[in-house]
């Protein structure tokens, strides 16, 4: 009983059920961190894309020229992100519908707006991917940790029942071992919750920018259509 008491020793000496819970929680933590980093990369790429595309868009460049540049990028197998996709979808539909002489102007506008809405939905879906997972980890892993703790404390009290003398030394290791499960659960949950809240706010702002842009773009198209 007089050996060194350390967290590692406690984890190694824990009962299989508690160890399973701990392993599961560590796995959850790793996966949620993968999601956090990956989402962070995606969001920063989207923001960078918004910034660079808006600069190009408002620089007074010809729209068909902008569209051709995007096609060039696509051919080079480089990803076209966020706002440019919106622009490409709307402009493509606009050009295609305008070439048909039978189309009236409202129908052209409607078609272009619908195409942009679809592209927007796709972009939003891309952004929100994995966010539900983060939310789940954030809310569930404390409970899983608690389950491990309850199992551990249960075991330690079962052991206590066989002892004649109820000393602190008999119960303490079991309880400490059980509490480690809760600690790991919280360790997994806290970053996930923080990341989820942060990313939800970011998605809100990015999608807001997209909506504004699509409105602005459709107003430009509208002007082009009716000024002729």
């Amino acid at each position: 009983m007089n050996e060194t008491m350390s967290v590692t020793r406690l984890i190694m000496g824990a009962s299989p059920a508690v160890q399973l819970v701990m392993l599961f929680l560590i796995l959850l933590s790793v996966i949620s961190w993968v999601m956090i980093v990956q989402r962070w990369l995606v969001f920063s790429a989207a923001e960078k894309g918004i910034y660079s595309f808006e600069q190009r868009f408002w620089s007074g460049m010809d729209l068909s020229q902008l569209y051709k540049e995007g096609t060039q990028l696509h051919k080079e197998n480089q990803q076209v992100v966020g706002m440019e996709n919106l622009f490409r979808a709307g402009f493509k539909e606009f050009m295609r519908l305008r070439q048909k002489s039978s189309m009236d102007k409202d129908a052209i506008m409607d078609g272009s707006q619908r195409a942009m809405r679809v592209a927007y939905a796709r972009e939003e879906e891309k952004l929100e991917k994995h966010l539900a997972f983060l939310a789940t980890v954030g809310s569930v892993s404390p409970y899983i940790g608690l389950l491990g703790t309850v199992i551990g404390i249960m075991n330690s009290f079962l052991g206590l029942a066989n002892q004649t003398q109820a000393t602190l030394q008999v119960v303490a290791p079991g309880i400490a071992e059980a509490l480690i499960a809760t600690a790991i659960g919280l360790f997994a949950a806290i970053p996930a919750v923080i990341a989820y809240n942060r990313y939800a706010a970011k998605i809100e702002s990015i999608t807001g920018t997209y909506i504004t842009f699509s409105d602005e773009f459709s107003s430009i198209l509208h002007r082009q259509l009716y000024s002729q």
Binding site: I31, V34, V37
Partner: peptide
């Protein structure tokens, strides 16, 4: 960005 994020995590 998956490989990078797995590595980082």
């Amino acid at each position: 960005g998956y490989p990078l994020s797995v590595f980082v995590a």
